[in-house]
């Protein structure tokens, strides 16, 4: 049973310039009553999500659409439990697989096999479970003996294959996908999409953030339109995409 409940979730990012990143400056400012540090701007905060509420139950396949910076990636990170909301509550039940910016968390100095193991352990698999899946992962990547070499020797496409294969090797109940994965050569993309579809048919909740409307049409049955961190609209895929297109062409 997988379930996601968000109630009034807001996320605000503090934006620090190098000066506000400094403890020395902070102490000097405190010690001199703020006379030395000239405050150019008061605290800058960016509201990435504002009062987002929705509930997803088993079987939900939701597409997130919106401009760059609309809050899609932040929302996915909140769902994954990486960002705790600044206010509001979130309740998530079920095993989560995040498929975000794929290059993040890949260690370029470690070999392909090591990266498979590390990623698997991070996702909460045991050493034995990862070992059992390694062969299948290796096969999917088609990287062969490259898997013994450090990942920094890989081309971007090869890195993508590896990361994608590892990220999709577990059987999650909740699948969170960010658009970044839709890169790579055509042949791989086809294969990746096939795997994604197979993967999607097993997961009980999918949240997919994408600019590739085709992918959303294919996988999702409803969509959420985000703008400036707010939920503007939620409904059937075609209606939401139409509204998104209309706003974009304005």
């Amino acid at each position: 049973m997988a379930r996601i409940d968000l109630d009034g979730v807001s996320v605000t990012f503090p934006i620090y310039d190098s000066r506000r990143r400094s403890l020395k400056n902070r102490l000097i400012a405190a010690g001199t009553g703020g006379r030395i540090e000239y405050r150019t701007a008061s605290e800058t905060d960016i509201e990435a999500l504002a009062d987002v509420s929705f509930a997803l139950a088993d079987g939900a396949r939701v597409g997130l659409v919106g401009h760059n910076g609309a809050g899609k990636s932040t929302l996915l990170r909140v769902l994954a439990g990486i960002y705790a909301p600044c206010s509001g509550t979130i309740h998530v039940q079920g095993h989560i697989a995040p498929l975000f910016d794929i290059s993040l968390g890949i260690d370029p100095e470690a070999s392909g096999y090591e990266n498979i193991l590390i990623r698997g352990l991070f996702l909460g698999l045991s050493r034995r479970e990862v070992k059992a899946k390694t062969e299948e992962i290796a096969e999917f990547t088609e990287l062969g003996s490259f898997l013994d070499l450090p990942v920094r020797t890989y081309s971007t496409g090869m890195q993508l294959r590896l990361a994608f294969a590892v990220a999709t090797a577990i059987d999650p109940e909740i699948l969170l996908i960010d658009e970044g994965i839709a890169a790579g050569d055509a042949a791989f993309l086809e294969k990746a999409n096939a795997r994604l579809r197979a993967f999607a048919s097993k997961a009980s909740i999918i949240v997919l953030a994408s600019h590739a409307n085709q992918l959303i049409r294919e996988i999702c049955d409803s969509a959420i339109l985000l703008e400036q961190g707010r939920v503007l609209m939620r409904g059937p895929v075609e209606e939401v995409l139409a509204a998104y297109e209309a706003r974009r062409s304005k």
Partner: peptide
């Protein structure tokens, strides 16, 4: 990672 409950900022939750 089976389950996670979101924190509000301090004050939001006990």
């Amino acid at each position: 990672m089976r389950e996670h409950v979101g924190t509000g900022a301090p004050g939001g939750i006990a």
